[in-house]
């Protein structure tokens, strides 16, 4: 039952993407253009990592409203490390990622030590972080970044005839593969899902719930930071405004992909597909000369539809299993 539903989900989402692509190929001029597809491979990559950053926290039944704030801060921090400190690219990226994980870990520490709702803690932290970024940078961007770094996000990697893909999409897919392995093969992955399914039960069966919550928020911070580093290499400059509009896609990608809001079940590759759907729709509608405002309305409606399906699915699963909870270990859909 569960497996059949999951298969239906994934094929359902794929079918929706195929339908949209068919519509855009016919009606949107230049959708299958090499430039469009290359652009899509760059935006989908960043949105997917933003979605994964939210997905890991949704998996433990919490949320992270600071995904955008952390991404923006790490983008600017990376720019500062390269431009002002003069670190080589690899060193700047490593230091920035460690700092991103640290900030996420601080979120987790505040949540576990005080027992306050993750929504409020991350809302407050997001405001503190963004405020600090703007105070420290005086709203100025870092623009003198090393060529090796900015060309990475601008130059295609794979060129097969008309098909050009950005290296960023390969990074996103690699991250997704690692995440899927973490959930499928490691104890920590099972702990995260067990905590999300039922923290009390997880605690009783020996899962170190507080540690899991802290580590998951650190992981979320790390992924948000990765998304920030990726987008700076794409834009070619580290703008403090990065991350301001990440809230909606961060929830939309994993939820459209089939991640349960209630926690305990994640969809890693579903999140990739969710990001692909959102970005394809944005690009397609833009090419069809639909004003960007209506695109925002449309994405809101897609998210709404996705949560309604999510709900129907949860009810169906509950009925199929006669009220027995899903076993957390089997709840990963790859």
């Amino acid at each position: 039952m569960n497996l059949a539903l999951r298969m239906l989900d994934r094929t359902g989402l794929l079918a929706v993407i195929v339908v949209f692509w068919a519509i855009f190929v016919v009606f949107a001029d230049g959708f299958l253009n090499r430039v469009t597809i290359f652009g899509l491979s760059r935006t989908v990559a960043v949105t997917a990592v933003i979605g994964l950053s939210q997905m890991v926290v949704l998996g433990i039944g919490q949320m992270n409203l600071a995904v955008g704030a952390i991404g923006g801060m790490i983008g600017v921090f990376t720019g500062w490390l390269m431009q002002s400190v003069g670190l080589p690219v690899w060193a700047a990226v490593i230091v920035a990622l460690l700092f991103a994980a640290f900030v996420g870990w601080v979120n987790g520490i505040i949540i576990t030590k005080t027992g306050i709702n993750s929504f409020i803690v991350t809302l407050g932290m997001a405001s503190v972080i963004t405020g600090l970024v703007f105070i420290l940078t005086k709203a100025e961007a870092f623009r003198d970044l090393p060529d090796a770094y900015t060309s990475f996000g601008k130059v295609p990697w794979v060129e097969l005839g008309w098909l050009e893909l950005s290296p960023l999409i390969f990074i996103a897919v690699a991250i997704a593969i690692v995440m899927a392995l973490v959930y499928k093969r490691t104890t920590f992955g099972r702990w995260m899902l067990a905590t999300g399914a039922n923290p009390r039960a997880a605690e009783l069966s020996g899962v170190p719930v507080n540690f899991v919550v802290q580590a998951t928020h650190a992981l979320s911070g790390l992924l948000a930071g990765a998304a920030g580093i990726m987008i700076v290499s794409r834009l070619g400059s580290a703008l403090p405004s990065i991350g301001e509009n990440w809230l909606l896609p961060s929830f939309a990608a994993p939820i459209v992909g089939g991640t349960l809001l209630s926690g305990g079940a994640v969809a890693v590759f579903g999140t990739l597909l969710g990001a692909l759907l959102i970005e394809s729709v944005s690009v397609g509608l833009t090419l069809m000369n639909v004003p960007s405002f209506w695109i925002q309305l449309f994405i809101g409606l897609v998210l709404l539809l996705a949560v309604l399906i999510d709900r129907a699915r949860t009810v169906a699963v509950a009925r199929g299993q006669r009220g027995v909870r899903q076993t957390p270990a089997g709840a990963t859909s790859g």
Binding site: L247, L248, F293, G300, L301, L303, L304
Partner: peptide, 12 residues
């Protein structure tokens, strides 16, 4: 989640 989605629609 409902109000996150409707907020996007209203802003549109």
């Amino acid at each position: 989640i409902i109000t996150l989605a409707t907020a996007s629609a209203f802003t549109g």
